[in-house]
Write a protein that binds this DNA or RNA. Sequence first.
DNA 1: CGCGCCATTGATTGCTTTCAACGATTGTGG
DNA 2: CCACAATCGTTGAAAGCAATCAATGGCGCG
Lengths: 276, 276
Amino acid sequence: MNGHNHSASAEIGGPFATRLRRLTHIGDDELCELQRLSGEARQIHAKTDLVHASDHPVRLHVLLEGWACRYKLLRDGRRQITSLLLPGEICDLDTLYVTNSDYAVGALTACTVAPIDRSELRDLATSQPAIGEALGVLMALDNAMLTERSACLGRRSAREHVSHLLCELLVRLMLVGHARGNGFTLLITQEEIADTLGLTAVHVNRVLQGLKSDGLIEQRGHNVVISEWGLLRRIAGFQSGYLHLEDVDEATFDFVRVPWVMQTQSSDQNSLDAHG
Amino acid sequence: MNGHNHSASAEIGGPFATRLRRLTHIGDDELCELQRLSGEARQIHAKTDLVHASDHPVRLHVLLEGWACRYKLLRDGRRQITSLLLPGEICDLDTLYVTNSDYAVGALTACTVAPIDRSELRDLATSQPAIGEALGVLMALDNAMLTERSACLGRRSAREHVSHLLCELLVRLMLVGHARGNGFTLLITQEEIADTLGLTAVHVNRVLQGLKSDGLIEQRGHNVVISEWGLLRRIAGFQSGYLHLEDVDEATFDFVRVPWVMQTQSSDQNSLDAHG
DNA sequence: CGCGCCATTGATTGCTTTCAACGATTGTGG
DNA sequence: CCACAATCGTTGAAAGCAATCAATGGCGCG
């Protein structure tokens, strides 16, 4: 009654299926096919690499549990995390079309990963158009998230950028049922956040404390709660459009209905006016 | 004899065909199909938009002449150019899979653009696997360029970032035959460069003058020459791998052979040692 | 010729980094 | 169960890179 439709088909399940169902027009049949391709899930220790840069990959990796990231290293050791990877996401989708990855994938926490054979997936994508299109959607989404992060890296202040990340994480985690209300568990270090946002860990720390002392967020241990979604969203300039949640039939997922997620521009401005 | 193989099939041509031939495994037959889909070329005035954010696009746009960009605007007017678009590139490939674009596309110079109907291209991509895969490669490339720019925005200094952009532009222009030796024509303003790199126009100006006075580049009017490729590349930390030039049979294009483009790491380090 | 856009230059401000040290928390082994 | 090490978070002071503000110069174009 409350959106938890754990029918038999949901047993295909896990976050990968949830995400595909909510973001693409894939059917349960195709979902089964995908599931059939995926090999046995593998456990990855925290702080180890799943994929090395300039590998010649033969399989893709679906993240089932834990958080991971794509990152690049400069020669002098500077690191940029180019994407945070959450449960249900494919770590290295672009290597489906390109013969070597120009980034590495690392586990930020302990992870569970399901491998999918690259050439088998390529075959499936061409023989089953619905799967090919679903993968296209996922790739376009990667693109959109990178594009938005570029805008953050280039043109947003540290405070705006940190706020933006928190907003994005909440929505993305909510999509796969890993949020609790307006809060979630943040298992990565401030240094990893810093490498994502192009800042230093020290400054991330100061910015987070600023947000806390302004009453926008609460943080106890690894638990983060966004207490003032409207304000935080406003500071961040967060527009969820780039996550393309609205592309899918809204009936298939009710979480978007939570009023403070899909707030309209006007009601948002009201809330800003109200609070100054 | 010198790489200009203008056979009959090259008449399919133009930079789009050149790019596809060099980056993907597409055949002349499929190239013809693509050409057939594309509508009549359209002229776009400089400084006008081709695509507006949150359109519901029915056609894609192939850039045939001129330079364009994808960009995002923040509410207060700050702009981030997320991709520079050069001749032969598709302006909005991701809208093939997603129903609205989260960015705008603007012409930086006067442009010539060929439209392709979205649903017709979707059909073609599924009915002709080779075309679907070629589009996948192009999308992965967009992804790779965004990823590399994120690393630049987040972790490179202004000087490194400007150098990196110049290196990238030279290689990308060379790919479609729009470079002259180690030089090219830079028709965009310093403010547009700044919006690409997440800097201010003032600072871009100072950095460019620094590179000039250090003898790394020459600039007269709109003409830029990279006089010290090895050094500039070294400063930028530019590794052309992310452009995936090596995925294709090298026999199909000889430009990569130009020794200073595909310089190995070791020879590069030598040149660094030599110059200090 | 004059307007407008773009490039250039200088002085000043400020956000973020860097460096350094200390405190808190977690996990581990005796 | 506690001591200890290691990692992570926190705080302060100083330095630096890039932004901002402001003004001038150059160039193309109507």
